[in-house]
């Protein structure tokens, strides 16, 4: 199972000619465990959300739209925290894997943060966080209806919270030690870091914006929030697709042949 996961990962990264290694298999297994944990937590949170929604529906005095949006926001924060928590647990597993290596390899020169996380992370963050803050600010400051302005403030607070959570995840991904025993596995380490960085900046604010759009009082606010939500989800999808298919290091002999 582990071997198949590593095989798929290498194939996706255009390195079908590379054999899987115990190190890559162990690292992907650690990622799989942490992702499973994050998804289970997300499932529990969603189940609680649905249960509360049903209770609310049956209640004689339903809550305000703002309170409902705040609650949904809290659920997303819980899911985001679960995703970052998964990254931390994965980091702990990877340190254990690294400690077992008899040979360790690192870059001899400083690597920029932008190189570590990759340009897709930067684009996704700019659209998700930057776009979310801008959308929230515009609605909070410019909407005619007071309820829309409240939605704008809620969006601002939510995007700020997600940005902070994402920052924690990013710091963890950047600062964690490289787990590599040769040049190829050091290249893999960079690719895995980029994939993990994207996990830290998942487009939760976009989902919140979609819900806020439905509750808005004017067409302009609705379209604004929806445009942001669609842009953030599309960019996140493209980023995920591109990063998961970025070329991995090729076998040394083949690289030399290709370069010759």
């Amino acid at each position: 199972m582990e071997s198949r996961r590593a095989r798929r990962w290498l194939d996706r990264h255009g390195a079908a000619d590379r054999p899987t290694t115990p190190l890559l298999r162990a690292r992907l297994e650690a990622r799989h465990r942490s992702e499973t944990l994050s998804w289970v937590l997300a499932g529990v949170v969603m189940a609680v959300a649905v249960a509360l929604a049903v209770v609310d529906e049956l209640s004689p005095a339903p809550r305000s739209e703002r309170a409902w949006l705040f609650q949904v926001g809290l659920f997303y924060v819980a899911i985001a925290l679960g995703a970052v928590g998964g990254l931390v647990i994965q980091g702990r597993d990877e340190r254990r894997i690294g400690a077992a290596l008899t040979r360790r390899v690192a870059h001899a020169q400083a690597v920029r943060v932008g190189t570590v996380v990759g340009r897709w992370f930067l684009v996704t963050t700019a659209v998700t966080v930057g776009g979310g803050l801008l959308a929230g600010l515009l609605v909070a400051a410019g909407a005619a209806d007071p309820r829309d302005r409240e939605l704008g403030f809620t969006m601002l607070a939510a995007v700020g919270a997600f940005a902070l959570i994402g920052l924690v995840g990013l710091v963890h991904v950047v600062r964690r030690p490289a787990v590599a025993d040769d040049e190829q596995s050091l290249g893999d380490d960079l690719l895995l870091r980029r994939e993990d960085a994207l996990r830290a900046v998942a487009p939760y604010p976009a989902m919140l914006a979609a819900i806020a759009a439905v509750q808005s009082q004017s067409l302009a606010v609705l379209l604004g929030f929806l445009a942001y939500a669609v842009a953030a989800v599309v960019v996140a999808f493209l980023a995920s697709w591109a990063v998961e298919r970025a070329p991995a290091a090729r076998p040394v002999s083949l690289s030399r042949e290709a370069g010759a």
Partner: peptide, 24 residues
């Protein structure tokens, strides 16, 4: 690497902490 100029003059090396962490 410095003497054979693989690492050229002006190249920034990793911090002590970073390199130590990466190499265990």
């Amino acid at each position: 690497q410095i003497l054979d100029q693989t690492l050229v003059v002006g190249t920034r090396l990793p911090t002590v902490r970073r390199l130590a962490t990466d190499l265990g």
